[in-house]
Amino acid sequence: MNATPGQAPVKSIMPKWVRNPQEFVGGIALMAIAVFALWASSDLQGMRGFSFGAGTAPRMFAFLLLGLGALITVVGIFTEGPHLAKYHWRGPFFVTIAILTFAFTIRPMGMIFAAMASFLIAACGTPETRWMETVIVAVCLTAFCSLLFPYALGLPLQLLPTFMIR
């Protein structure tokens, strides 16, 4: 589903006849997603007479995406275009870790812990971080969110870790 291709290949890997690597790789990735969707929806029923089955529409869109992906790939071969953009690992890596940390700690540890932890991890995403001010802002933001969401907005969020509530 979330076919997130990892680091794109370095441009030297690209053969010479690919003149627009950005489109070429993009098209291939879309085709891969389409094939994956076709496989994932292969267990669903198709047309029953003239009425649609559960799998008809997904397969229709998947085939459409497959065709479009192929077209984009072809365009990538025959037109001049930019090289693959450079990927940086630091930002995406720490932001992802921060999001995962939040997801895994919000239930057992409560919002105060989850918000603090993910703020500090996300802050590692840039070399510009200065720790003193980051910690101060983290505390303030956590306090603000702890008041805003459960109290001002009345959303059912648990603030403290489960073991402290029991």
Binding site: A98, G125, T126
Partner: peptide, 19 residues
Amino acid sequence: PYRLMFPSIVVFCCIGIYS
């Protein structure tokens, strides 16, 4: 500064989605 803003947005979005 962006270095303080982006972690706040990450946390805010996380809480928002979770809620």
